Simulated scan of single mutants.
Amino acid sequence: MILEKECDENTLILRKSSDVWPSFKRWLKKCGPAVREFDTDCQYFKNVMEVLRDTCPNLEVLRLSNLKKKLSPTNKLHFQKLTWLVFENCDEITDDCVNQFLSSDMNELAIISNKRVTGKFLNNLKTDKMKRLILRDCRALKFSFLLSSADHLKNLTSFVLWKENRSKIEIRNKLHLLLDKMPNLGEIGFSVVDLFTMYDDQHYLEESNVFFESVCRLKKLHRFNANFEVWDHHLEALAMNCKELLAVRLLFNQITRVGLDALCRYLGPQLYELNLSDSTFDDDDIVACVYACPKLVWLDISYCPLSDRAVHRIATARRDMRDNLRDSKYASNDDNNLCYPLQLVIGRWNLTGTKKILRMSSICDLKA
């Protein structure tokens, strides 16, 4: 590992400065075959990829950021043993560039903040071993390539897709077509917006009906983060069918106490993270939720109609739950996270109409 400070005996200390690059290249020529993982910010070093190709044939993990140079075209596979590849803020990376790294053992791939990758490279995957795929803020990404390569992605356990769709062809209402071909998903992270589509509540409802029908078939789902509107019947179906859920972050502004009670009844004892922001829940609703979820370590209640005493009441609830552990069904530390702080995220509108965020990382230790 290459860091700016020592981590352990396997750490090489390298300052983020171009003046160390010549000596580092000499070191790679001697020790490169032993390097298994490489992570660097390319803005400080020139011709990084050329050096790695010549010196590090046994790379298994490669993470590059701020690579501004397009790689020369080639049909040669650079690193036969590569299993994990990350490109972040690498503007000139194209589908042809990605193809040069797709080994038969590739199981994790992330492309973040890119303007040229369309997703066509997915059709060239040589394996269906891919477990984790992150495509975040890829401006040129085409949903059609995701659909056409779904058979190669059937064993995904984690799928993150952030996309501002500038096409007039909607993609949000087609996401379920992907989920239906990915039965092993344990983690979903969707932030998809069709910029040229005007929505009303009926459109949102119909869209969510189809989406959640597919989600509820994912029996291994444990982390669910999606910018989809959720109604009471969606939330109850989700809680009843996805019994391994530990983290839920959705758009809760359509949810009533009926849906929240259903979520707490089925999943409350195991939830670690919950986003209730922009909902209509008041102090009583939030406190009841906190009592029902002893494992919570993160809770977002931004822009809810709460009183000034809401934080005080939540702190009281956590204190009472700790104090009453002996008489509680959550007495074992294995069954609760009450010894850990509850990170409470609170956002409010200020007088100018802009949003203001307050983060509190030790809410459970506040004196009631």
Rank of each mutant, 00 (worst) to 15 (best):
E4P: 04
C7F: 06
N10A: 00
L14R: 03
S17Y: 00
S18T: 01
S23R: 07
K25R: 08
R26S: 07
K29Q: 10
C31H: 08
P33Y: 08
R36G: 01
R36P: 00
F38L: 06
R53E: 11
D54S: 13
T55E: 02
P57S: 08
L62E: 03
T74C: 00
K76M: 07
L77N: 02
H78F: 15
Q80T: 13
C90M: 10
S103W: 10
I111L: 15
V117S: 13
G119N: 09
K120T: 05
F121G: 12
R132K: 15
I134K: 10
F143A: 14
L146E: 03
L147V: 04
H152C: 15
L153Y: 14
L153P: 11
L156H: 08
V160G: 01
K163D: 04
K163E: 02
E164H: 14
E164F: 07
N165H: 11
R166I: 07
K168S: 14
I169V: 15
E170H: 04
I171L: 07
L178D: 04
M182E: 00
G189V: 01
S191V: 10
L195D: 09
L195Q: 14
D200G: 01
D201H: 07
Q202C: 08
H203A: 08
L205S: 06
E206V: 01
S208W: 03
N209S: 03
F212W: 02
C216E: 01
L218A: 04
L218W: 03
N227V: 00
F228C: 05
E229T: 06
W231V: 02
D232W: 13
L235I: 08
L235K: 06
A237Y: 02
A239E: 05
N241E: 01
L246W: 02
I255F: 01
V258F: 14
G259M: 06
L263G: 10
G268A: 07
Y272D: 11
Y272H: 11
Y272Q: 10
E273A: 09
N275I: 06
N275M: 08
D278P: 00
S279Q: 09
D282L: 11
Y291L: 03
K295G: 05
W298H: 09
L299I: 04
A310W: 06
H312K: 15
A315M: 12
R318S: 04
M321G: 09
L325K: 14
D334W: 05
Y340C: 11
P341K: 10
Q343P: 02
L344W: 01
T352N: 12
T354R: 15
I363W: 02
I363A: 15
C364D: 14
C364E: 12
D365Y: 15
